[in-house]
Design a protein around this nucleic acid. Structure first.
Length: 715
DNA sequence: AGCACGCCGACT
DNA sequence: GTCGGCGTGCTC
């Protein structure tokens, strides 16, 4: 009897495809197996999602599966169900999500390489060749290239037709190459379990919380909690829970934000769990990632700790899922495949009957609201105030460094104390503008002004890296005066260098390409007390391994408020709170916030460390405006080079949705960044009571429009 | 996504 | 006629 396999491929296609299972694989092939299939002239890694004894495809001519790639299936059927649900939730492709769930080195793909034949070397009748054919041949004279490379190099969409013609003329030939990394057969040793030391303070609230959570854990049925408290308190509870979970012979999945995943944290975890721990984060080498994944797959890892993608790791028998710093944006992956690790954690915990713990010192108002409503908020303590914070009104003091601030800094430095300065500006530098005609150099491909990098003497686009040389003459009016504006960290750093020329001033911006190493060096210099003033963005504020300073200066945190984003207040509150958390906790220490919006509530509440007051006001605002958590929003961004087509398609989409009723449609409107890499962007925002309403219309409204689009879900 | 097919204007 | 740009349908 013939066995038929239903296969999902890692392409943005909803469909599954049927193949015939060759005799040789019949015994070994299972649901969840990874296979190599021929799919329209190319070879792809696919995954078996179902097996059939009857031909499910009708009289369609089926192909055979080319190869079974492993002895044992890579996915369990529960994992398949889980990822399918997660992908559907975020309108992303299941196949892509499955591919993202295994180390890239374990997948296979075919590519086509193009060679010239001997005939091409002899005198060919050049006249008989088309422009493109000539170009292709001259490129290939030296060596062979991949089709994809040639396509990028020559910028032709239909490279295939030209290659076909050349092939017919006998001048080139193509060879399919299967890219397969070496299988990693080497054994990994399973270290013995270490002693788990609990530095659980004898704190009444923590004990209560731990008790309540442990009870839930013991039930081995899905339940969830929001743990509100400082990092130290939360950690105490986490480690207590982990110990109990291990005693139940259940696994733990512990997620942390991307940015805090530093060597420090890894060392800390390693120290606590000498063995049976797998660590997963984006900076792992291919080899290490594969090893960690295998440790988990084999069931050797008892604790899996990692960033958002760890939610796609093959952990089984999970009793506890922790998402620390619940409010962090990095849990939401917005690009192929899109998914939110927090929702993933929920699905996972539900499926496993596990205890789900969200933790934060500054929970998102959405999470805080739901937890309060549904009675699963656990309050560890009143978070202590950040200390003495002074707000300086930009309107009253225009200079970046005022006399009083200068004196303050001087005093600290004289006492051999360090100063931390933060800029609210997300980018790290300034842009240029002509003082006569106000011309601003902008990116050729993106709707954004170019950022000025003083050291490199260059103007760079933040979105596409388009770079031009620094100009001291305005290209529009020829005026010699071109001055920089804006208050990025570089400008702040320079200002400090000017005011304190004998002091060691450093600027931290790790998002600059190829600079990670040096940035880490800056941090360790600061840690060793070899830097007097350290300037950074909210990125720096995320680094909990930063030693606290006795003077913290925050410049213009209101910049995040200018974002057209319903979460702007929350983001501002959060970033200021994180910056202030680096203030030393003693009477003597001071923080200064320089702002043009001294009366803004998110700035004021962050300065006084009053999360509760912030929450109360923000949740009122969300309610009045009918924003999440009181509604579900879907943001759809359409992208195309042709603005006319783009506008037309997005209007059609909006009209389609409007017809269905009970959904509020905002837009179409230009996206905040209206052009990126030459592509225009138009967005439509849908607002509905719940996600079900969105789901009931969105899929059909998006179907078969060829235009590029991304969907983001907020609730 | 990536590719082939086929249509069509434009160039020789 | 044939080159090459563009829209569209399909992939087991």
């Amino acid at each position: 009897m013939t066995l038929y396999a239903e296969v999902i491929v890692p392409l943005p296609l909803e469909k599954t495809f049927y193949y015939i299972v060759p005799e040789g694989f019949k015994e070994k092939i299972k649901i969840g197996s990874k296979v190599l299939v021929s799919f329209r002239h190319r070879l792809l890694t696919g995954f078996i999602v179902k097996l059939h004894w009857k031909n499910p495809a009708g009289n369609y001519q089926l192909k055979e599966i080319t190869e079974l790639l492993d002895d044992k299936p890579v996915f369990t059927s529960t994992f398949l169900t889980y990822t399918q649900k997660l992908a559907a939730y975020f309108y992303s492709s299941w196949g892509n999500l499955l591919q993202a769930s295994i180390p890239p080195s374990l997948t296979v793909k075919s590519r086509k390489r193009v060679f010239v034949t001997g005939k091409a070397g002899e005198g060919i009748n050049m006249a008989s060749l088309s422009n493109y054919e000539k170009k292709i041949l001259s490129l290939l004279q030296k060596k062979s290239y991949m089709e994809s490379y040639l396509k990028g190099k020559l910028k032709v969409r239909d490279l295939g037709v030209h290659l076909q013609r050349l092939e017919k003329k006998g001048l080139i030939f193509r060879k399919e190459e299967v890219q397969r990394k070496k299988r990693n057969k080497d054994k990994f040793d399973i270290p013995s379990a270490g002693q788990l030391e609990i530095d659980f303070s004898q704190d009444k609230k923590s004990i209560q919380a731990a008790g309540r959570l442990t009870k839930s854990l013991g039930k081995q049925a899905f339940s969830r909690f929001l743990l509100y408290g400082s990092t130290e308190k939360r950690e105490g509870v986490y480690f207590y829970l982990i110990k109990h979970c291990l005693a139940l012979k259940k696994r733990i999945l512990f997620l942390v934000p991307e940015i805090v995943f530093t060597e420090d944290l890894i060392q800390k975890v390693k120290k606590r769990f000498t063995g049976n721990t797998a660590i997963l984060h984006s900076r792992l080498s291919e080899k290490k990632r594969e090893l960690a994944w295998k440790t988990i797959k084999d069931g050797a890892a008892e604790v899996v700790i990692g960033t958002r993608s760890a939610i796609l790791s093959p952990v089984e028998n999970v009793g506890l899922v922790i998402i620390d710093e619940e409010q962090d944006d990095s849990y939401y992956q917005k690009q192929n495949p899109a998914y939110d690790a927090r929702i993933g954690a929920w699905f996972k915990a539900e499926q496993e009957g596990a205890l789900l713990v969200f933790g934060s010192a500054f929970p998102s108002v959405e999470a805080r609201f739901r937890a309060g409503e549904q009675g699963y908020l656990i309050n560890l303590e009143k978070i202590s105030s950040p200390g003495q914070v002074e707000i300086v009104d930009e309107g009253k003091e225009r200079r970046l460094v005022s006399d009083s601030l200068y004196k303050r800094i001087k005093l600290r430095l004289a006492r051999k104390e360090q100063v931390l300065a933060f800029s609210g500006r997300r980018g790290y530098s300034a842009f240029l503008t002509c003082s006569r005609c106000s011309y601003i150099p902008r990116c050729k491909h993106c709707d954004i002004s170019l950022t000025y990098h003083k050291k490199r003497e260059e103007l760079v686009c933040h979105y596409c890296n388009y770079t031009i040389k620094y100009m001291n003459v305005c290209p529009k009016c020829g005026s010699k005066v071109v001055q920089k504006k804006g208050i990025g960290v570089e400008v702040i750093g320079e200002e400090f260098k000017k005011k304190f020329p004998k002091k060691r001033v450093a600027v931290f911006h790790p998002d600059e390409a190829g600079n990670k190493r040096r940035q880490e060096d800056i941090l360790s210099l600061y840690k060793d007390g070899k830097i007097d003033i350290l300037v950074g963005t909210s990125m720096l504020a995320h680094r909990f391994d930063l030693p606290p300073a006795s003077l913290v200066v925050i410049f213009y945190p209101e910049i995040t408020l200018a974002l057209s984003d319903y979460k702007a207040a929350q983001k501002t509150f959060l970033s200021i709170s994180q910056m202030l958390s680096h203030l030393k906790k003693d009477k003597d220490s001071r923080a200064v916030i320089k702002t043009a919006m001294p009366n803004n509530f998110s700035i004021k509440m962050a300065a006084s460390g009053d999360y509760h007051a912030f929450y109360e006001q923000e949740i009122q605002y969300r309610k009045i405006m009918n924003y999440p958590p009181f509604s579900c929003m879907a943001e759809i961004v359409f992208q195309d080079e042709n603005l006319r087509v783009l506008a037309e398609k997005s209007r059609q989409f909006a009209a389609k949705v409007k017809k269905k009723g009970n959904i509020e449609v905002l837009g179409p409107a230009l996206a905040p960044v209206a052009r990126v890499r030459g592509r225009n962007r138009i967005q439509v925002i849908l607002k509905a009571k719940g996600k079900e309403e969105i789901d009931s219309v969105l899929k059909s409204a998006l179907s078969k429009s060829r235009i590029k689009k991304s969907v983001y879900i907020y609730e």
